[in-house]
Design a protein around this nucleic acid. Structure first.
Length: 421
RNA sequence: GGAGAGAUGGCAGAGUGGUCGAAUGCGGCGGUCUUGAAAACCGUUAGGCCGGCAACGGUCUCCAGGGUUCGAAUCCCUGUCUCUCCGCCA
């Protein structure tokens, strides 16, 4: 959400942002009209309330007939008040619903582009492995070592469901544990989070409205399964006023993530690339409203993720997301993509995003600055690691001719061995 | 799942229809005193929205949403959450 005052003062910018980000469903002119009407009604409503309050004070001190007359008069005023408030209520709802759809203008250094095809590669790191034998994809490798069972996953729970088994589980746990430990050593607060949250959390983090179709809903209890630990972690301090001294908050959350993957039928159906349930270690930063500091943290959480990929010796590239690929609330975003030999391309494994105060406004997440002024926080987040998708790279890049898989050194202590098979 | 109690400012805790955004205590902040500190004393101490350059004015908020009333922290209804006891349970 944006500040309505900012919208009023930057109409052209907002309209242009709508276009660049392909935001449909919000008419800025319409919003401004509603805003005008809203403010007019607020004035009317408050004036009549002021009149009432004054009269009530007098009535309290009156006696006899005078009092009866005054009460009768006020009855009419009350009816009028009700009428105005009903109108105001409707307008407010309309206003809120439009406000939730106004996009955050993106960072000035964002590359212009229409969609993901125009994201800009900043650099690649690591060497793409070459094989002097016929390479196996992650599914072949995992089946060879009895690390996965998709058939029975599907039997029990439908498409995109799976079991990990044996070294498959152990390797996943190893990657998660190693990553989590790393972040804790860097000073992040380790967090385990609720996997079920209420609608406010999804709306507050910017997933709703818009993302309803991709989220699992438990209608009976009016709760949703989280799509990432970002949701509970960013919403953690919702409705709070923090102090500037306690910021930044740096959280590392580990959670399972649930995604319906609506509208992806037939896409990435092979293997463990696109599935309904996966595990992720997520970095979430809550800091004071300072763009420069936010940019620094953006770089820092990217660097953390890159450090992990370097430790795992995985080739990857860094992408700068273009304007057309930035979702409604995003100020700027960088993806990391790891090399996946079987796809003969890089595949997205990390996504770092800065929101400025977009999420904080929706979550009513504030802090008192050093002058005692209450402001909205800035928030950012980035993947630290997501499995099993990352295992695709890990397994495929480290395979040997005989089908055995080398375990990266940093994971060996967690696995108790240096090789699978 | 059954029975009961409760939800008030940063915290504790008064307040059962009118002058209550709300006593009092604690904490916080500022000051007096002091070489400094403590103690004591004095003052101050919520947030949102609307209007205004500002000073300031108005309005809303005592869990949430409805209702009764000229008027609600206070009465009624619904919901949420918390606590106690019983049952069930990893």
């Amino acid at each position: 959400m944006l500040d309505i005052k900012f919208i009023r003062g930057n109409v052209d910018l907002i309209k242009q942002t709508c276009q660049q980000k392909h935001c449909t469903g919000v008419g800025i002119d319409k919003l401004l009209e509603i805003d005008d009407e809203r403010r007019k009604l607020i004035k009317e409503s408050e004036d009549i309330k002021a009149e009432k309050n004054k009269a009530s004070e007098k009535i309290a001190q009156m006696q006899g007939d005078d009092k009866q007359v005054a009460i009768a008069e006020m009855k009419l005023v009350s009816e009028k008040e009700k009428e105005i408030d009903e109108k105001l209520q409707k307008i407010k709802e309309e206003f809120e619903s439009l406000m939730l759809r106004v996009p955050m203008p993106y960072a000035p250094d964002t590359p212009e582009g229409k969609d993901e095809s125009e994201n800009v590669e900043i650099y690649t790191k690591g060497e793409i492995p070459t094989f002097d034998f016929e390479l196996k994809d992650h599914m072949e490798l995992m089946k060879l070592h009895d690390m996965v069972d998709i058939e029975r996953g599907v039997k029990l729970s439908g498409a995109r469901s799976y079991f990990l088994k044996n070294d498959g589980v152990l390797l996943e746990q190893a990657v998660l544990q190693y990553t989590f430990k790393k972040l804790v050593e860097k000073g992040f607060t380790p967090m385990s989070v609720p996997y079920m949250v209420d609608t406010d959390c999804l709306r507050g983090t910017g997933y709703f409205p818009g993302g309803e179709e991709d989220a699992y809903n438990m209608e009976r209890d009016d709760k949703w399964l989280i799509a990432t630990a970002e949701i509970p972690l960013t919403a953690y301090h919702k409705d709070e006023i923090l102090t500037e001294e306690e910021l930044p908050k740096t959280y590392a959350g580990m959670s399972t993530c649930f995604r319906r993957e609506a509208g992806t039928y037939g896409k990435d159906t092979h293997g463990l690339y696109r599935i309904h349930q996966f595990n992720k270690v997520e970095q979430v930063i809550i800091l004071p409203a300072d763009t420069e500091k936010s940019d620094e943290w953006h770089e820092q959480i990217l660097a953390n993720a890159e450090e992990i990929l370097k430790d795992l010796r995985l080739p990857y590239r860094k992408l700068h997301l273009c304007s057309g690929d930035l979702a409604l609330g995003k100020y700027k975003s960088h993806d990391l993509e790891c090399w996946m030999p079987s796809r003969d391309s890089y595949g997205e494994t990390h996504s770092a995003t800065s929101f400025k105060d977009f999420q904080a406004r929706r979550l009513n997440l504030r802090y008192k600055d050093s002058n005692g002024k209450t402001k909205f926080c800035y928030t950012l987040n980035n993947t630290a690691i997501a499995t099993p998708r990352l295992l695709i790279s890990l397994l495929e890049c480290n395979q040997n001719k005989d089908g055995s898989i080398n375990i990266p050194e940093v994971l060996q202590e967690y696995m108790g061995k240096d090789k699978i098979g």
